[in-house]
Design a protein around this nucleic acid. Structure first.
Lengths: 199, 199, 199, 199
DNA sequence: CATGAATGAGAGTTCATTCAT
DNA sequence: TATGAATGAACTCTCATTCAT
């Protein structure tokens, strides 16, 4: 489900080749980063000829872009589907984070790819985080409306929550799995429901 | 406060040259990223000969490393000095974030440099965030001890707070300055003091 | 009137495809030169599949050769037909040049194609100019025989006349049309009939 | 005496390297043409590293341009010096052509290089021929003024003469040396002094 | 210590040609 | 015949690093 390219394959064989290149690129970029990934390394992993790369992509940047958008969409979709069951705003956030943590553990390369987009494809990078923030913000507003959450929550609240989630995902999803996703989500939930002050 | 190098300058002239290279490197890496920064571009900006670079650094990676550590230290120092006046754990966090936001606005390149370290110098990257997390965690423990904060705050709480701060810094420090540092810090403070749930 | 190919089309459909390729090639080679013309650009312009090119031509060089010979023949034919009415040797040359100038204006790409043959297809290049020189030389001999022209005109005279014509064609046919073909032909005619010395 | 480059060598060693590259380029371009000359082939012939090429030139086009201008200037200079002794306009043209023919024989590669500029560096190509035409035209005007030549000679006369010279140079200078330069110059002189009509 | 020319491995990209469908 | 995906050699250009002066 990569972004639209001018070079869409017209045959079944072509579709397979393009898929192979995209999959190989995901692994290479995730493992070695944008700078240390070469097009040869991608095509070798994909087991296609070097030139075939250019049948489907105009440049290294272009596959990267396609990939970032693809993955950004996946993350969003995954979290969305995880929240369907929650009937309370705070529970919804908890589910979202739990899902995100699990996703991060299964797709550690996705993490690196989106992060590296800050340099290799700044547009997509901003789009990714701004999109996530908007989705969180909408959930906050809905929570305020239903009375679950305090009133007057701003976009900044959404960014704060996203930051919590992303860093917890990095530390407890990608770097180590020493704690369960639920445990971590509970920490965030505690902060959001009553803060950390003594009472 | 550059990292220890085997090639520490022995003369005053040498010290100046090294400083010029480090300053130029900070600008170049911050502006163009690691991959798109070349040694010539650094030496040209520093107005020294290409060869002089290798008098002080063994490789491109090495300046980068020196820089990341330099900046990581600066961030920490800055936040620490800002918290000296606060007599309450939550106020201390508020001050730390305000200081961090101001710092981010003045040193937008630092953000990119530390982030890019995820790929160009993973060691320093982890060291930076783990160090920050530890410092926050220590403050939390102190807060628990003095009774300002809830008991049983974990390292994960520290990571959550750091994530909030970092993302608020990216969004409201680097990307735009549409809101004041105090406003943003107030949002974080609200979350930490009582959460976002309706009461 | 393309050159003999081992791959002459056997069906009407084939004839059309080959014609489309040749016409497209003429435009591409004329516009971008041999080196900067790609087979894809030819087939795209001709609106046929890339592979179809090789149904009719063995290589890029071969279309080029076919084209050069085609155009070389056209130039000759055009000049020949223009001279039929002239009953005097000098008038015949004047008509030939006028016709050539008009032809150059209508087929500016021909110029570039034949010229580039010096590098891409030296054989055809020499054949073209030697053929032209021979035809001019034959006309000169006929003129000598009929008493219109001086005796003892050599092959070198023919080359000199051809050079005049070619450069006048480049300057006043292809590069600009600031003067009429007749005006230019008059200049050449003056030189041939009485030289440029003061009398 | 190559055209000014932004990358002028600053040391004696650098000057030698640049000269070696230029000389090698002249031979390669002259022998194989622009399209079939690679930068490796140039640097190999010059016995310098591939990368050294880019220390002095930005691209293949740039060396080519430098070369064309260098050679264009040489041709003009050579012809000019040959004409100093002539005291009559027609004799001056005869000397110019004789000199040009000799020059062409000694520098056959120059011929090809300037010709190929039509494609590889159109600007220089036009500049070369327009410059030559202007110089011839000025001589014609001077001849008219001194009474040696007919009045009212135009720029087109200059182009006609240049075309004669160039084609005679190609045929009897570069392609074969079957006739002496003087013989050929005599043919052109005959045409210019009295034309080819019977009297 | 400073300088900048020299080096060459390596990367991205193009494109003529082949071939399975 | 027609199609267009696949191939990989060849090429241009970049740049970290070395080294003689």
């Amino acid at each position: 489900m990569a972004a639209e390219t001018a070079k869409t394959p017209r045959t079944e064989r072509g579709r397979k080749t393009m898929r192979a290149i995209l999959d190989a690129a995901a692994i290479e970029f995730g493992t070695n980063g944008f700078g240390d990934t070469s097009i040869v390394s991608i095509t070798q992993r994909a087991k296609v000829a070097l030139g075939s790369f250019y049948t489907y992509f105009d440049s290294k940047e272009e596959v990267f872009r396609a990939l970032v958008q693809d993955m950004s969409a996946q993350v969003g979709k995954h979290a969305a589907s995880a929240m369907s069951g929650a009937d309370n705003a705070l529970e919804r956030e908890r589910s979202a984070l739990t899902a995100f943590l699990q996703f991060a553990r299964e797709h550690k390369e996705i993490y690196r790819i989106i992060d590296e987009a800050e340099f290799a494809d700044p547009e997509s990078y901003r789009a990714h985080y701004e999109g996530s923030a908007v989705r969180i913000f909408e959930r906050l507003q809905e929570g305020s409306a239903t009375g679950d959450l305090a009133e007057e929550l701003s976009e900044a609240h959404a960014w704060a929550i996203m930051g919590m989630n992303v860093f917890l995902g990095l530390r407890y999803g990608v770097w180590s799995e020493e704690k369960s996703a639920e445990e971590i989500a509970a920490v965030a939930n505690q902060i959001l429901s009553r803060g950390i002050a003594q009472r």
